[in-house]
Simulated scan of single mutants.
Amino acid sequence: MNKFLLLALTALCSVAACNREKSGDSSNKSLNFSAIESGTLVNKGDSVSLRLNLPTDVSFDSITYLLNDKPYITAKDSDAIWLKTDSLGMGSQLITANVFKEGQMESANTNIVVVPSQLPEQYSFSVVNTYPHDAHAYTQGLEYRDGFLYESTGQRGQSTLRKVELKTGKVVKKIDLPSKYFGEGMTIVGDKIVQLTWEEGVGLVYDKNSFEKVSEFPYQASKEGWGLCFDGQRLIKSDGTNRLYFLNKDNYKEEGFIEVYNNKGAVDKLNELEYIDGKIYANVYYSDVIVVIDPHSGAVEAEINLIGLLPQKDVTEDTNVLNGIAYDQEGKHLYVTGKNWDKLFEIKLLGR
């Protein structure tokens, strides 16, 4: 190699190394958490050790720790602090450390994901009764009242709202939705039926007896309509994520939400919903599982495995997924079906 070129390259490398060293000094002193790693799953009830990675030659006046942007604790040293999770909800919790020195502040963030400490209970089933179901009904929502099923069906241009005799499967009242709507979940609130649409961003409200449409309402933070149920005080709406939104029963405004988690993490694709004895039952789309959810914490308390419910001999090329939960509150009967299933089943849960 030409000696002049070698000298030039050596000088260039020396300058680059110097620059890296200077920039390295800054980056090595950047503030971050050494514990806990962002995204770590933490069982509800556990305490979590939090420690900042502070350069040894940096002094400071105080450290203020925030939990979800609210003050949690202020420290005067860099010792680890303990975060209690007993009172936290399910899901991601943002942790911020603000380090103060002579009126200046530097911040670092991390997060934990709180999940239930207990594994969900596992339920199987037995079939109590089998009833006919319209194999052309793409079931999206299902409710039971006084011997009848109220059903919302989907598919663009084929969506309906219908009243069906339980024992015969006969449709005694039906309206077709405008072709622009893809029908989704529905529930009954007093003398009204509330039905969701999928991507159209609007819910439809009908008179329960006449099926005459009386109003509609727009979605807010929840962009899609999937499942819907009523707990006696609020509507509960799913949108295909792991969030369940609470809606005012009178004006349909969203007034909060919970996030649904099991011990492994978020449970999304929550579909058709039913409120049963203080718990939310939810179909999980593309599965044969119904999850039982605590409406206060969002924890999945149980899973109902319905694999094999529809006999293989009754499965056709049009048969779609399990979807549809209805409950007879007075008689304590639980009914389930699926999209384009030719049967509706009354089942008894085993293992409870």
Rank of each mutant, 00 (worst) to 15 (best):
V128G: 07
A108T: 11
S152Y: 07
I95N: 01
N111D: 15
K173E: 13
Q155L: 13
G103R: 02
L94D: 11
Y65V: 07
N111Y: 14
V115E: 06
V172I: 14
P55G: 04
L83W: 04
T56Q: 13
W82A: 14
I112Q: 01
I112V: 15
L166M: 14
A137Y: 05
K173R: 13
Y138F: 15
P120H: 09
I63C: 04
S107F: 02
K101Q: 14
P71A: 03
T160E: 05
L142R: 07
Y65R: 01
Y123Q: 12
E184C: 05
T168A: 08
F148K: 14
K170V: 12
I112K: 04
L54F: 04
T96A: 00
N109Y: 09
D69V: 00
L177I: 09
I175A: 08
Y144L: 05
Q155I: 09
Y72R: 02
E106W: 10
V113S: 01
K76M: 06
T160P: 01
A97H: 10
F182H: 07
Q140G: 12
E143W: 01
E151A: 11
K101R: 14
R145F: 00
V58P: 04
T168W: 00
K170Q: 15
D146H: 13
L161I: 10
R156V: 08
Q118H: 09
K101L: 14
L177H: 05
S159Y: 06
K163D: 08
T96I: 13
V113W: 02
D69C: 00
G185I: 06
E143S: 11
Y72T: 10
Y123A: 05
L177V: 03
E102I: 04
Q155P: 03
L166W: 03
L67C: 05
R145H: 06
Q155R: 10
K163F: 04
S159W: 06
V171G: 09
K70I: 10
L88N: 09
N98G: 01
R162G: 03
S62I: 02
G147S: 04
L161D: 09
S78G: 15
T96E: 12
I112C: 00
G89S: 10
T160D: 04
T139A: 06
K174Q: 15
R156P: 00
S107Y: 02
P120D: 07
Q158L: 14
K173Q: 15
S126Q: 14
G169S: 08
P120L: 04
P178A: 14
T96R: 15
N111K: 11
L83R: 03
D61K: 03
P178N: 10
Y123G: 01
I63P: 00
P116C: 11
Y65I: 07
K167F: 05
A80N: 06
T160Q: 13
I95F: 01
I73M: 13
E165W: 03
F100P: 05
Y181H: 05
L177F: 09
D146E: 14
K180D: 12
K84A: 15
L54Q: 05
H133N: 15
P71W: 00
Q122C: 07
E143F: 00
S62Y: 08
E184N: 08
